[in-house]
Design a protein around this nucleic acid. Structure first.
Lengths: 186, 186
DNA sequence: AAGAATTTTAGTACCTGCTACTAAAATCAA
DNA sequence: TTGATTTTAGTAGCAGGTACTAAAATTCTT
């Protein structure tokens, strides 16, 4: 058993913990063929907290992420809104939103931002997407900052016609036309 | 200090732990004005695991959820696929996917299922949604089981015309027509 | 090759948040 | 009042640590 040098081991340790954050020091020690003390020393040097801390952080982060992905009524961050008229929302494309292979944003995230903005504009208890026409102009990559601007173009009874234009760096990447139906009173 | 009865306390305990899963027995004991022993006894009777277990479960579940919502290439469960021709996917509407107020599914989840199925059918390294026309027929509620069937209706060069029909209990709730562009070779 | 410096291992006391258990005290119900 | 139920107290032991001291092993330097 050759002894590998400290730096190399540190890299291995970081990798392992990243991949398997639930491993205890004992597990890690076995895995890296060093003593538990060494693992503790390494963790201290690399400022990596103990398992229980790691798990806790994971649970907290995940809770937050789930909320911001699915429990929020609006996908992205609402910047400005004039109820019944127009609205602006912003969203940054993160790692979660792109295809592994090519780092291009999955279309439904862009759609989701636009759709939820369109619904947010309608001043109604219940607003449901009826029909939509969408067009992706340019593909969006990780890190880009999408600004969606929505505008009500027509109102007919309880039907709202809304156009959303999403831009990245002033360039239009996506256009959607929604017909949102408001069902406020039954 | 009046002593409340066991059943009532059990309800309180369940609520507290549900809301604040990170509380230790000590915290809970303080909060409910009983001894730590009582909390332990209660937890035992209610089959509620200890904090560290709870946190761990939370972290694991959340990890899974995040993956299935955003990291997965396909939203919903792929049931059947004939590359370049057709596909079927299934998705159950969970609590995460509905509006608080009225328990109606957010449209973009239904869209996401359809869209990701459409992309999955295309046998290409890179497939991007170009244009889509969608129509929500009936609103979907929590617990419903959505079956999306996709079919390639036309192919023109690297453009695939795909129709997706989503049903719940044999009833059509959603129809989408996508034009997916395959960018396999550059 | 010897000595110094660095790295790794070993071991101890103590901590949190438990489980599993025994037993006493308090409260309720007939 | 007595018997059952509920609550509290306390002990031993466990996992997975922190914080610390010190010895052993290895590497570097000259």
């Amino acid at each position: 058993m050759e002894r590998i040098n400290k730096k190399a081991r540190h890299e291995l340790l970081k990798d392992k913990i990243n991949k398997y954050p639930f491993m205890t020091d004992k597990d890690l020690a076995n895995n890296l063929n060093v003593s538990v003390q060494t693992v503790r020393l390494d963790r201290f040097e690399l400022k990596i907290p103990e398992v229980r801390q790691r798990i806790k952080i994971l649970a907290e982060e995940a809770e937050f992420k789930i909320k911001s992905i699915s429990n929020d009524d609006i996908v992205g961050e609402l910047i400005d809104i004039k109820l019944g008229q127009s609205g602006i929302s912003m969203m940054t494309i993160t790692d979660d939103m792109v295809f592994e292979k090519n780092k291009i944003a999955k279309g439904y995230f862009i759609y989701s931002q636009a759709n939820s903005l369109a619904i947010a504009i309608i001043d109604a208890e219940i607003a449901i997407t009826g029909v939509a026409k969408i067009k992706h102009m340019i593909s969006v990559k990780k890190g880009e900052n999408l600004v969606a601007k929505a505008e009500v173009t027509k109102v007919r009874g309880n039907k709202f016609f809304i156009t959303v234009r999403t831009t990245s760096n002033e360039e239009t990447v996506f256009i959607a036309k929604f017909i949102i139906v408001s069902l406020s009173d039954q």
